[in-house]
Nucleic acid binder design. Structure first.
Lengths: 242, 242
DNA sequence: ATGCTGAGTTCTGTATACAGCATTCGGCAT
DNA sequence: ATGCCGAATGCTGTATACAGAACTCAGCAT
């Protein structure tokens, strides 16, 4: 476990105000500890370190992360607003339990928001990036791939797709929802598990954009989401209910 | 200023774990201070106590609210994730500045989400509540009314409209966004300012639902949002930019 | 055996303390 | 007067301390 900050010199006067991490050399990125903690938690969530519903011992977790309870709690409260964590008065924080229904709910929201983002993007920009979208889609056309790889590629591709969306708030919401959704996916399929993909769907969307047919692209995007969702869904017949 | 908890007895041993407020008699609602603080801040925001962009002095505000900095900060961090508050490393928290563009952005998102909520609601439920929706709409058909009154009525009406939406997450997001949007509105129009309304739009939506035509209702809902947005927008020609 | 009661333990919720950054304001050079 | 530098101050970011819930489990009554 790599602590968020310092460590290794247990009794040294802690260097407050963590000096940030990699970035452009002279930028000296300084972020609040709570944000670094949040990132670290998300990172570890991604690695499947925590299971849904698992309750959190603040003292233990804070120690492991090498920070005090304060920034940890602040990170947890922030994550709570994102729906990744739940809290109950007197019982503290827990990683939110996952369920099929919530997965469906989240997907529905994400479809609506990405559609909106695409529809309100500058058409000129869309035409401009269409070739790249197409190229990327063709470059990664494997019908089978590990889930982790798919996820990374998908995120990058969708990020490019939405790069023309000027609605900042919308993009933040989409990013946040995607994080949550990834967590749901991870519960179902392991990071290295091989999954089938519908590789041509991205090509299809890109092609629509090349043709300047945004409406059609939106439809294709929705289909892409739906099929992706179904690929995940059919993996969880056992623990279906709830 | 009414403190969130206790007060009036400055040096009495504070009664920890605030005993909640009104609720069903034997329920004894106990909520974390941070949540009470959050509600209180939202309340005061609603009253126009804070101006957008205003920076927050944690010590002062905490004293005014009658709590320590810890729960206040936790409330602020939570509000930050909702987009109502901004923070900058070393400079603390500020009420998020408002701008025309963000108002438009938020409205666009809200339209998309409410449409989704309506489309995915149980049609049977929609038919069932349609008469009430119609009755409510007719009961409040004044073409002019104070902004505060409109807002309360509108919220109640829309809440009823979406009462059949089973997507919990979606409803939470809608509620949260509405809160933010109200804040934007308040910047533009005073609480008691008289505003024109398009009273018949709600009737129209209800009528569509009575007829069982959800698609048409969605269209009408979108029109309702757009016209409401425009009524607010035309109020801010002066400080337009940004 | 089962259910209730109460002391003990653990952990959360809140308050307070402390250290360093940011800002401000006066002094000096230009 | 204007602009730069440095001490002083105020405020934030983080750590720690403390009080009171919730949970655990042994002991007793039924």
């Amino acid at each position: 476990m790599v602590p968020v900050a310092r460590r290794m010199v247990p009794d040294a006067r802690p260097v407050r105000y963590g000096t940030g991490k990699k970035g452009s050399p002279m930028a000296i990125e300084r972020r609040p500890l709570r944000e670094q903690v949040k990132d670290e938690l998300l990172e570890q969530l991604g690695r499947g370190r925590f299971t849904p519903g698992e309750s959190i011992n603040e003292v233990h977790l804070a120690e492991e992360l090498g920070v005090s309870r304060t920034p940890l709690r602040e990170a947890l409260i922030s994550l709570e607003r994102e729906g990744i964590i739940t809290s109950e008065r007197g019982k503290g924080f827990r990683f939110a339990p996952t369920g099929k229904q919530e997965f469906l709910d989240l997907t529905a929201i994400l479809i609506a928001l990405e559609s909106l983002a695409l529809r309100t993007s500058d058409p000129a920009h869309l035409s401009a990036i269409a070739p790249r979208l197409l190229a990327e889609a063709r470059a990664f056309s494997a019908p089978l791939a590990p889930h982790g790889t798919i996820e990374r590629y998908d995120d990058a591709w969708h990020a490019l797709l939405l790069s023309g969306c000027a609605n900042t708030r919308l993009r933040e919401m989409i990013d946040s929802l995607k994080l949550t959704l990834h967590r749901y996916e991870r519960v179902v399929v392991g990071d290295h598990e091989i999954l089938e993909r519908a590789a041509e769907e991205h090509e299809r969307i890109a092609q629509c954009l090349l043709d300047g047919d945004v409406d059609q692209a939106v439809t294709a995007l929705e289909a892409n989401w739906t099929s992706g969702m179904e690929r995940i869904l059919e993996r969880l017949p056992p623990a279906a209910a709830r």
